[in-house]
Write a protein that binds this DNA or RNA. Structure first.
Lengths: 416, 416
DNA sequence: CGCGTTTGTTTCATGGATTGACGTAATCAG
DNA sequence: CTGATTACGTCAATCCATGAAACAAACGCG
């Protein structure tokens, strides 16, 4: 996914609004209310909630029903007198989103429906050493096909594919992914090609970014501003402000791993010194020695920590402090009050949280009167795939009218 | 100014859109085009630019003319055949914005018109030592009255007052301003009270924030994403993303001064160690010794640096490096490509820029393929006052329809 | 001076939404 | 079983901003 080309810096539309634009707008309004309700909601309730009149609600729900975006549940016999209400819910069949993730230990695929529930989740171990990017993408294409079939078997129609990649991404191109040995790989175009004859739009985005979106969509409404820190071979962050992802001027925000902890500290492959990544990434915690064969780095660290290995515990202690300093910097700049430890950090949270909280409490100026919450991510290691799938389906959730008028895969670029 | 209460995290309206809502929307669209044009623009040009038809433009411009938001300039005889165009420009009279700034060396007031040009600018030296907050606000009230009169003499009608304060602000309350000895001062309410019987809405916001907005409004359209670093007794930053100010979850973003440079470095009054502020603020550059009597700190530093004082030059060298590291952290997290050195840093830019650029080039991951620009702020030390005044007038610029329908000072809370 | 040309205005039709009334469906209370 | 109650659908009438087309105004040019 690329940052939109910034056609205007104004949040308001740059195009004239005509009468015929009213229906789509109100349709989206109604749809958002159905989304937000979380449970079946009747037409009358919708009328009251949106401020639209019942005739209008009827017309709009007709369109939504015809487009398979919502379905009627049974009558809700609420005990009171009168005709019972007819519940409206997001359709359990209909449009769906597909997510893919290139993870340290393998590849993952996921399908979610409009309601955001996971309907299919698959994982294939994969070793990247010596494998070309094309191999990875061919494997992903296979998993995508399987996922589309699995969706179809449940009457789900996959709309878009979103791929999570471990590195900065723009316009479907992975600029660099050291863990995979990738540099400037046109992952979006390659995957779209490998999917033939399927013609699914493909979006590519950073792993931490998508994981943050996953947490945002999966979390309750109170979760509107937070940093998601993803630990793994490197360290990335996804920042959500006011319920919207912060992408930065060029879509490369969140490089927390190269935040400076010590101005003349350990050297980092990026060329600088004292980067957070050199203190708190999995390799750093493992102390340079490779993980035992067959064990992924995070499993190696957790098992050693659980066994009470003093070197590992010391490394985790140091990592927590470094992470806390890096996060404190980010929080001082961004003013957020929730930190989600994600990726491998979600597994290591019990050893990290203490030091992270301590450093934040000490260094964040506003922490004194506005405490910061540090907690592991809800979705754990699957956050990125699920987030990717949710991002896919969000195409429809954000613009139901486009989906309805344009039919399947309306006006989406094939790669972005 | 407080962050709005986040009624909805959606960029789309939460209220139904009716036919009568079309006109305000299109009116704002037209007004934005007039704003963006920068020079007189004809109705026909507006029609082409907005996509609306000429009759609609006529009706909308009628309303804008009646509300004194725009004026017709003379006919533009462009040499070609046909009826000449009638230019439309932002009204040089009509609604105006008032800004106030509590600066290290005194108090400033400023009036700008709808076009953003400064129509009045006043400065009063002021010593804060031993003076209560009420004294400061009484003085500001006096300057406000004078500015309103000066505006009225030019046929300008001040809509709102915005006060820039050196510290974190929320809901019109200054949480802390060490330079003034303020803690939890209800500056907005106090100023509103002191202005009686004038009943002008008063907004209060952080100085760096408003200065950043000033640069945003004053700069050309290419300036949409940047960090404004304000140097002074402390160090603050205003962050603009996609043409919009980033305020953080609670409105306290931009505390760059307490970003960690060295994880066990110099102690800072905030309680932590190694804060940027301990390396690059004016007191740090002065090396702890107070500025000579009668000289403000920035003048003291510049004069010594110009005289070639080796201690000062070394301190500036250190400060530039530290500032570069702090900014590199921010840029890695935020992905921005423009840094504006503001406040006192705008005067010291020639000694700082080199080191700042060097550190950023070394430490920002994306700097290799996407260079970062570092330059002094355009408005210099007046950025905050002007930004405050522009913020005031922006109330009208962003919602011209509200101004037109609601009459003067429509529906603005008296303090925020 | 009159013609063509461009700009701005007036008049009328269009279309989606609201309003309000009415009809129908499905339940509960007695 | 009957009547009251509530939910949902439908129909006409009306509103209102926009679009389309014709009209008026102001200029350059021959």
């Amino acid at each position: 996914m690329s940052p939109r080309a910034r056609p205007s810096r104004s949040p308001r539309p740059e195009e004239p609004v005509r009468q015929e634009d009213l229906r789509p707008l109100n349709l989206e309004l109604v749809f958002r209310h159905i989304l937000a309700a979380g449970q079946p909601i009747s037409r009358t309730e919708l009328a009251a909630a949106t401020g639209l009149t019942r005739p209008t609600i009827t017309r709009i729900t007709e369109e939504l029903l015809a487009g398979r975006l919502i379905t009627e549940t049974g009558l809700a016999r609420n005990g009171r007198a009168g005709r019972p209400r007819v519940g409206l819910t997001l359709s359990a069949s209909g449009p769906a989103g597909l997510g893919l993730d290139i993870r340290a230990d393998g590849l993952a695929a996921c399908v979610v429906d409009l309601g955001g529930t996971v309907r299919h989740l698959a994982f294939t171990p994969f070793r990247y050493a010596g494998r070309a990017a094309a191999d990875v993408l061919a494997q992903l294409a296979g998993m995508t096909r399987a996922a589309v079939r699995a969706g179809a078997a449940q009457d789900l129609d996959v709309v878009t594919v979103t791929l999570a990649a471990p590195g900065p991404v723009r316009d479907g191109v992975v600029r660099s992914a050291p863990a995979l040995g990738w540099r400037h790989v046109e992952a979006g175009a390659l995957l779209h090609e490998a999917l033939r004859p399927l013609d699914l739009p493909v979006m590519v985005d950073n792993e931490a970014t998508l994981a943050a979106l996953g947490e945002l969509y999966a979390g309750d409404d109170s979760l509107g501003d937070f940093v998601y820190v993803s630990g793994g071979l490197g360290i990335g962050a996804g920042i959500v402000l006011d319920g919207r992802l912060m992408r930065g001027a060029r879509g490369w925000s969140g490089e927390l791993g190269h935040t400076v902890i010590e101005h003349d500290g350990l050297p980092c492959p990026c060329g600088a010194r004292g980067c957070l990544q050199s203190y708190a990434s999995l390799p750093a915690i493992l102390g340079g020695e490779p993980a035992p064969a067959g064990l992924t780095p995070d499993v190696a660290v957790t098992s050693r920590a659980e066994a009470g290995d003093p070197a590992t515990l010391a490394a985790l202690d140091r990592a927590g402090t470094a992470l806390g300093i890096g996060l404190a910097n980010a929080l001082n700049i961004l003013d957020l009050d929730i930190v989600l430890l994600g990726g491998s950090f979600s597994l290591l949270a019990s050893w990290l949280t203490g030091n992270v909280e301590a450093e934040i409490g000490r260094r964040v100026l506003t922490a004194a009167w506005a405490p910061v919450t540090v907690r592991p991510a809800l979705l754990g290691p699957d956050a990125a795939v699920i987030g990717a799938a949710l991002t896919s389906v969000d195409q429809v959730r954000r613009q139901p009218s486009a989906w309805l008028t344009g039919g399947p895969r309306a006006r989406l670029p094939s790669v972005s």
